[in-house]
């Protein structure tokens, strides 16, 4: 309520209103540390709206992040949140989910955190079809530590550890997620807010291992070295170059900044989750005396 005086009242009569996302955020922590033109905040905005649309009880929602700029999301969200060690967001989330099967667990982290140091955890969580949701903000670089090359940096891109341009082969994250067994895989950019919100809602309402990759500008450490003047310019590039394809295959969704970038939902299937498989197996072995775990 006390926020009314900070609202801008330039035109006519404005009823005091609070930003609907405020109740999901720790507003005492604002303004956040993300640079002007960074897209992480936009993705958080979409996430909050998706949670609201999916009508998820926020008392039953936990968010886990690793270390990095994107890792700060857990600290800014007014939910049960964990800011864990670098690369270990998925192990932490696994524990949260197994101990509290009624919780919706979301991992919100960067590309370096989830796929460089944490890559192994990702493939196994996907293989098990653990009922957690992964949101990966891919800014093509290690934002927090100075713009080093990551497994997702496209070829030819200049990074602080690749001054002559990256020559390594690049991960195709949706394809990786699909081949490991994720039941929901999508890719969007921070500039496609409507589609992203819808996709997040769809993922949150689904059972099983979901994965969304979100391209985001990093003007300070990626853009500056690669002739992209600011975050806004990168966002406009995303809008221009990205093409939304229905039923596209993840394998073809490689990322090459000079060509068209394919966005969309690549996978949306059903598969037994880790908990269901465990219950089925034990029921078969122990018979009716076995009490199924985590099911009402």
């Amino acid at each position: 309520m006390g926020k009314t005086d900070t609202l801008n009242k330039t035109a006519e009569v404005r009823t005091p209103a609070e930003n609907p996302v405020d109740k999901y955020l720790r507003m005492d922590r604002m303004p956040h540390i993300w640079c002007p033109g960074c897209g992480i905040g936009s993705t958080v905005n979409c996430f909050v709206r998706a949670v609201e649309d999916a009508m998820i009880d926020i008392k039953k929602l936990a968010i886990v992040s690793g270390i990095g700029c994107t890792g700060r999301v857990a600290g800014y969200m007014n939910l049960d949140s964990f800011h864990t060690t670098h690369g270990r967001a998925i192990p932490m989330a696994t524990g949260v989910k197994l101990a509290n099967p009624e919780m919706n667990v979301v991992v919100y982290s960067g590309d370096g955190d989830l796929f460089a140091i944490g890559g192994n955890h990702f493939i196994h969580a996907a293989r098990r079809n653990l009922d957690i949701k992964i949101i990966c903000v891919n800014n093509f670089t290690y934002g927090m530590t100075g713009g080093q090359v990551t497994p997702t940096t496209p070829q030819g891109i200049i990074a602080s550890t690749m001054p002559y341009g990256n020559f390594e082969h690049t991960f195709n994250l949706p394809f990786l997620a699909e081949s490991c067994g994720a039941v929901y895989v999508a890719r969007w950019t921070a500039a496609h807010v409507k589609q992203l919100t819808k996709s997040m809602k769809e993922m949150m309402s689904k059972k099983g291992f979901g994965f969304i990759e979100i391209f985001s500008p990093c003007p300070t450490l990626f853009g500056r070295r690669n002739k992209i003047a600011d975050g806004l310019e990168h966002m406009i590039q995303f809008k221009d170059k990205c093409k939304i394809k229905k039923g596209a295959s993840a394998k073809e969704a490689t990322f090459d900044p000079d060509n068209e970038i394919v966005l969309g939902t690549f996978v949306n299937t059903e598969r037994k989750t880790f908990m269901e498989s465990m219950n089925d197996r034990y029921e078969k072995v122990f018979g009716p005396k076995y009490v199924r775990y985590g099911e009402e």
Binding site: T6, N8, R14, C35, P36, G37, S42, G231, L232
Partner: peptide, 18 residues
Amino acid sequence: TVYIKDELCKGCGFCIEF
């Protein structure tokens, strides 16, 4: 209408462009 909290703005221009 829109409501703006001036103090939080970092002038990225996303809202203006989009």
